[in-house]
Amino acid sequence: MDDETKISIITRLRIAGCVFAEEEARLFFSEAQSPAEFATMVERRINGLPLEHVLGWAEFCGIRIAVDPGVFVPRRRTEFLVRQAAALVTQGAIVVDLCCGTGAVGSALAVTMEGIELYAADIDPAAVRCARRNVTSVEGHVYEGDLYEPLPSTIRGRVNVLVANAPYVPTEAIVLLPQEARIHEARVALDGGADGLDVQRRVAAEATLWLAPGGHLLVETSERQAQLTVEIFIQNGLITQVAYYDELDATVVIGTRPNV
């Protein structure tokens, strides 16, 4: 590809709103198997498809996560959720990734700590298909269904770490999201109900039934919603703390089931 063509492609990507146009063009060039595939990638991106859907993968916690069309794209801020969970995971632990989407959080934890027993679940069939590609590669198990419903009963009351990157965008705020999310990601992965916390309430309500004594529930939320999330956790019998990371604008609420 000559320099003039490269400049033209980068310019088109910039006009389409791609802030990192040069980097994206390089990624397309390195991933495409032919000039025709490269051109298709560029056109799909210019037409508003998320970069990760165009590439078919996202980099998350230093690993490559498969991302299928229509599936929620793992965010950089969620790497903080992984770090907080990793600090609580020990070898042989039973780990559950609820609302798993691509399975990025569970997969990253399995890479961080080998030997965990990993289970993941999501209500969206497309997400489940995608998660199986990621989670089974780290010897985890993926189930389709509503929150805890599809999980095997054998782990009930034995879960050491439960992570739930549940949707927490208030319904009325969906329209304010970037077009990439609004149009190209499943609404079920975004919409958290009137105040954004409906799914978190349901996760917390059953958490102590699934957690082992001393087990932990971790959810990502916003700084603005964190106090409400804390109240939800406390109401459901969890000892609660909040972790913040300004650099990624990340907030994680951690609830622990008492040992008694």
Rank of each mutant, 00 (worst) to 15 (best):
V163M: 03
A181K: 05
Y168H: 07
V161I: 15
G157H: 05
G157M: 08
E172T: 11
H184M: 04
E180S: 14
E180K: 05
Y168K: 00
N160F: 01
V161N: 00
A166M: 03
N165D: 12
E185A: 10
P178H: 07
A166R: 00
A164R: 01
V175D: 08
L177C: 08
I183C: 14
V161K: 00
R156W: 08
L176W: 08
A181P: 05
V163P: 02
H184I: 06
V188M: 04
R187C: 14
A164L: 07
E180C: 10
E172K: 09
A173D: 15
V161Y: 01
E185T: 03
L162E: 01
I183Y: 12
V161L: 07
G157C: 07
T171C: 14
R182K: 15
A186Y: 00
V163K: 04
L162K: 02
L162V: 10
E172Q: 09
R158C: 09
V159R: 00
R156S: 10
V161E: 05
L162W: 01
L162H: 04
H184A: 12
G157N: 03
V188S: 15
L177M: 14
L162C: 01
R156Q: 13
I174Q: 00
A186G: 14
A166Y: 05
A181F: 05
E185N: 06
G157I: 04
V188Q: 05
Y168P: 03
Y168G: 03
R187D: 15
A166C: 15
I174V: 12
L162T: 06
I183R: 13
V175L: 11
G157F: 07
Q179A: 14
P167V: 01
Q179V: 13
Q179W: 12
A181M: 14
Y168L: 05
R182T: 14
Y168V: 07
R156Y: 09
Q179C: 11
E185G: 08
Q179K: 12
V175K: 12
V169N: 03
P170I: 06
V169F: 06
I183G: 09
L177F: 10
V169L: 08
A186F: 07
A181I: 10
E180L: 08
Y168E: 02
N160Y: 02
N160T: 02
V188W: 04
P170F: 06
A186K: 06
E172F: 10
L176D: 13
Q179D: 14
P170Q: 07
A181Q: 04
L176H: 09
